[in-house]
Design a protein around this nucleic acid. Structure first.
Length: 496
RNA sequence: GGCCCCAUAGUCUAGCGGUUAGGACGUCGGCCUCUCACGCCGAAAACUCGGGUUCAAGUCCCGAUGGGGUCACCA
């Protein structure tokens, strides 16, 4: 090149972890990565961060693919589409991480640590008790003789590999969205585990190694990562690699400003799909969370966003995810559709043969004529439910003497219980429901009535758990939570 | 608690030294209308506080306060 170095091509990535339902925050960050890549003719990479074998869920990865595609975001490289820098699933890259951990060991930038989980747990408790100003690993193994450590490891002693953080000086990095560099004392960070005892890397090692190997030019991720970035900087430097540019996006928030969570908001992309939100409306809405189009424009397409996108229109205050505003935007999209398009949308949503085939078995024995179908199955086609007509039955479902707070807590507990296990199938739900009823000391019939009213808004319904499955996990979760909140409004946040 | 990030109406935001502080959601009122909804018109509603810098501060600087994040062999 005669005129100097060409700017490195823009390569960005979204790196979801397949631990549950496809999260709206994943779509949010994916959107900005995608838009930035397209704006600069770069590539958008999808990488699956499945290094935690205890949390990985079998169906989660596929759901992430589908949800992102449903949103209208497509990736240039990824586990399912391949690409020149694969594999794109971290669980298939263990050897790479191990090699790199060894490089760090050789350089003296990392060390083997033989501390047991037990010791670390005690340490943590101790620090809490002492109200220590600094928490974290005490560097117990940092000064072990490397040769001894190697020998112990070779003898099969379980261990992890930790990063040797500098003990003095400051570490700074620039963030594209902030005018001042983010600076921190190096000693503020403890010696983070890089390679776990099962041989898998932690996020810190894996993301740095992969971003470098995959030639990622810009790391656009959520603000919750900002405080671990220092560790990543140390890693890049230890390897002698050039660092990517960082942009830490604000976190989506609940109405109370805390980080968005499923306890306070529907966070699964599937909820929005099942509830009839259009993907372009969801994306449009997400785009307005922290970014503005310019002028008074707030309705725009993905392509329009790409064409005008720039980082300087990001605002960093954590945006509250406001369902009402999303619905308004969706309404705009809906109204501009033709009757034919709207009819098609309805069909694609739930008024189709496939979906009806799932509803029919629920109600067929309960109707005499076809015209009774819809009244019998109405709650399968609605989002939120109005409980006012059944308040009396709801409060009395488990006996007149049971206080509303107790019912509310039990409902929330039921949600926690199905949340804790994989899948959402009727037999398992029923079993779960029975043990839940028993735990509450309620007759199964009574307890199920409580659930029935909460999930359908009716005192009469088809088989409860079959109905839940058809309605869908996301909507069921929201209805039960809303019902619980109605029974016992959540207390105002306690003062500290 | 340590550290870091952030700060315009209830909410999303515009503003990039001089504005009657603009738009949108939501709320309330009115018009339209067989009802409802849409649509249209209108209203209430914000620069967290205190110091600087400057002729001039929502805009720049410092501090306080408030909110958030993070301190795992989770990402």
């Amino acid at each position: 090149m005669l005129y100097g170095r060409m700017p490195a091509p823009v390569r960005v990535r979204i790196a979801p972890s397949p631990t549950g339902d496809p999260h709206v925050g994943t779509a949010y960050i994916a959107l900005f990565n995608y838009v930035f890549a397209k704006k600069h003719g770069g590539q958008f990479v999808l990488r699956i961060e499945d290094t935690d074998q205890t949390r990985a869920r079998a169906d989660s990865e596929q759901m992430i693919f589908e949800a992102l595609r449903w949103c209208g975001l497509s990736w240039d490289e990824g586990p399912d589409v391949g690409g020149p820098y694969g594999p794109y699933r971290q669980s298939e890259r263990s050897a790479i991480y191990r090699d790199h951990a060894n490089i760090l060991l050789d350089k003296g930038a990392a060390y083997r640590c033989f501390c047991t989980e037990d010791r670390l747990a005690k340490l943590r408790v101790q620090q809490q008790a002492m109200k220590a100003s600094r928490f974290g690993y005490d560097r117990h193994c940092r000064d072990l003789d490397p040769a001894d450590a190697r020998a112990r490891a070779a003898a099969g002693e379980p261990h992890v590999i930790r990063l040797k953080m500098p003990v003095e000086g400051t570490i700074a990095f620039t963030d594209m969205l902030r005018k001042e560099p983010v600076v921190r004392e190096a000693a503020e960070s403890d010696d983070q585990v890089l390679l776990k005892s099962d041989g898998m890397p932690t996020y810190h090692l894996a993301n740095v190694v992969d971003d470098h190997l995959m030639k990622i030019s810009h790391v656009v991720r959520a603000e919750e990562w900002i405080s671990s970035t220092q560790k990543h900087v140390v890693l890049y430097d230890a390897f002698g690699w050039e660092k990517p540019q960082f942009a830490h996006m604000p976190l989506l928030r609940n109405a109370d400003k805390s980080k968005i969570s499923k306890r306070k908001n529907p966070v699964s992309i599937n909820y929005y799909r099942d509830t009839g939100i259009f993907p372009q409306a969801l994306l449009n809405f997400l785009a307005t969370m922290g970014w503005s189009f310019g002028g008074d424009r707030e309705k725009f397409t993905l392509d329009e966003m790409v064409s005008v996108f720039s980082w300087d229109r990001i605002s960093l205050g954590g945006p509250v995810f406001d369902l009402a505003k999303l619905q308004h935007l969706n309404e705009q999209y809906l109204h501009e559709m033709s009757n034919e398009q709207l009819a098609d949308a309805l069909v694609a949503w739930r008024l189709n043969r496939d979906f009806l085939t799932r509803v029919v078995p629920l109600v067929r024995t309960r109707i005499k004529k076809l015209d009774e179908f819809l009244p019998r199955a109405e709650f399968v086609f609605t989002g939120d439910v109005d409980y006012t007509p059944v308040m009396t039955e709801l409060r009395g479902a488990c006996g007149q003497d049971v206080p509303a707070e107790r019912l509310s807590a039990a409902l929330l507990d039921f949600v926690e219980r199905f949340e804790a296990r994989e899948g959402f199938a009727a037999p398992a739900l029923e079993e779960l429901g029975r043990t839940w009823a028993e735990a509450n000391g309620w007759k199964v019939g009574q307890a199920f009535m409580l659930l029935r009213i909460a999930t359908t808004g009716r005192t009469a319904s088809p088989g409860l758990f079959e109905t839940m499955v058809v309605i869908g996990k996301e909507i069921v979760r929201r209805r039960i939570r809303q019902c619980a909140a109605l029974l016992a409004p959540p207390k105002a946040p306690k003062a500290k």
